[in-house]
Computed example of a mutant assay.
Amino acid sequence: MRIEFLGTGGFHPNERRHTTCLMVPEIGLVLDCGTAGFRIAEHLETKTLDLFLSHAHLDHICGLTYLVTLPLIQGVEKMRLFGVQNILDAVRDSLFSQAIFPVGPPFEFHAFTAGDTIELANGIEIESFPLTTHPGGSTAYRFELDGQKIAYVTDTTVDGTYTEFVRGADLLIHECYFPDDNLEWAKTTGHTHTSSLARLAKDANVGRLVVTHVDPLNLDDDPIGLDALTRVYPNVTIADDGLTIDLAK
């Protein structure tokens, strides 16, 4: 199987990155659905989609409105939306309110409590973990594909609470919005900065780190100060839109 990085930026899209959206096309699994959600259609390989939301900030959910045509135009038979209850409520009552988007949501809503494990119809289990340092909180996920343990963590500071949750992951997909010289902004906004992510990857003994959800105001090849990370943990990639990771390789 492969993981497609459809959107790898945070806050707002820019010329290089749309906002967060990851997809495993072979099983119809989607993690967050920001502005890059329009790309889901071209990657479809299933008649069902299982979409997991980390939280309800617009850069993670606005792309859900782009999916309303999938059942009609591309024959998608079922779209299931997973998240903690208040996140699903925000999507249903605010994003899809008549005043904002006058087409009803085409999803089955499936609420869980952060910390639960959700088993999908294909037998894959998605473990969840509550993150608390970003305004409104967020949810991290962990699952296994092709014998590879994958963890997805975004919109949080590295606070030590979830180290065990990601420990031993073959692939850790983690946000890093700020370089170390913006440490105070990282604390204020509840985002990760470079050296804290380096320590986490090393301490949790992860196999590979892919950095996503980077600052959209920085279009450089290295928006996070990569040297500070690789001195501590070397096996790291900064994701761009279009990155594909083949888990079988």
Results as ranks from 00 to 15, higher is better:
residue 3 I to S: 01
residue 7 G to L: 01
residue 8 T to G: 02
residue 11 F to Q: 03
residue 12 H to A: 14
residue 13 P to E: 09
residue 23 M to H: 12
residue 25 P to C: 11
residue 25 P to A: 13
residue 26 E to Q: 14
residue 27 I to G: 02
residue 30 V to F: 03
residue 32 D to K: 00
residue 36 A to P: 00
residue 40 I to A: 04
residue 42 E to R: 15
residue 42 E to Y: 04
residue 48 T to C: 09
residue 49 L to S: 06
residue 51 L to V: 15
residue 59 D to G: 01
residue 62 C to I: 15
residue 63 G to K: 05
residue 71 P to Q: 09
residue 80 R to Q: 12
residue 81 L to P: 00
residue 83 G to K: 03
residue 84 V to W: 00
residue 84 V to Y: 01
residue 97 S to G: 14
residue 98 Q to V: 11
residue 99 A to L: 15
residue 99 A to I: 10
residue 103 V to Q: 13
residue 105 P to S: 10
residue 117 T to R: 15
residue 122 N to W: 08
residue 126 I to S: 03
residue 127 E to H: 13
residue 141 Y to S: 06
residue 142 R to F: 07
residue 148 Q to A: 13
residue 157 T to K: 11
residue 159 D to K: 10
residue 163 T to W: 06
residue 164 E to I: 05
residue 165 F to W: 06
residue 166 V to T: 06
residue 167 R to N: 06
residue 171 L to T: 03
residue 176 C to Y: 01
residue 176 C to F: 04
residue 177 Y to M: 14
residue 178 F to Q: 04
residue 180 D to R: 01
residue 181 D to E: 13
residue 182 N to V: 07
residue 182 N to P: 00
residue 183 L to Y: 13
residue 186 A to S: 15
residue 186 A to W: 04
residue 189 T to S: 12
residue 193 H to D: 02
residue 196 S to G: 05
residue 197 L to Y: 06
residue 198 A to W: 02
residue 203 D to W: 07
residue 204 A to E: 00
residue 206 V to Q: 09
residue 207 G to I: 12
residue 212 T to H: 09
residue 216 P to W: 06
residue 216 P to R: 08
residue 218 N to P: 01
residue 220 D to N: 10
residue 221 D to M: 12
residue 225 G to V: 08
residue 228 A to V: 07
residue 229 L to F: 11
residue 235 N to F: 09
residue 239 A to E: 01
residue 244 T to V: 15
residue 244 T to R: 15
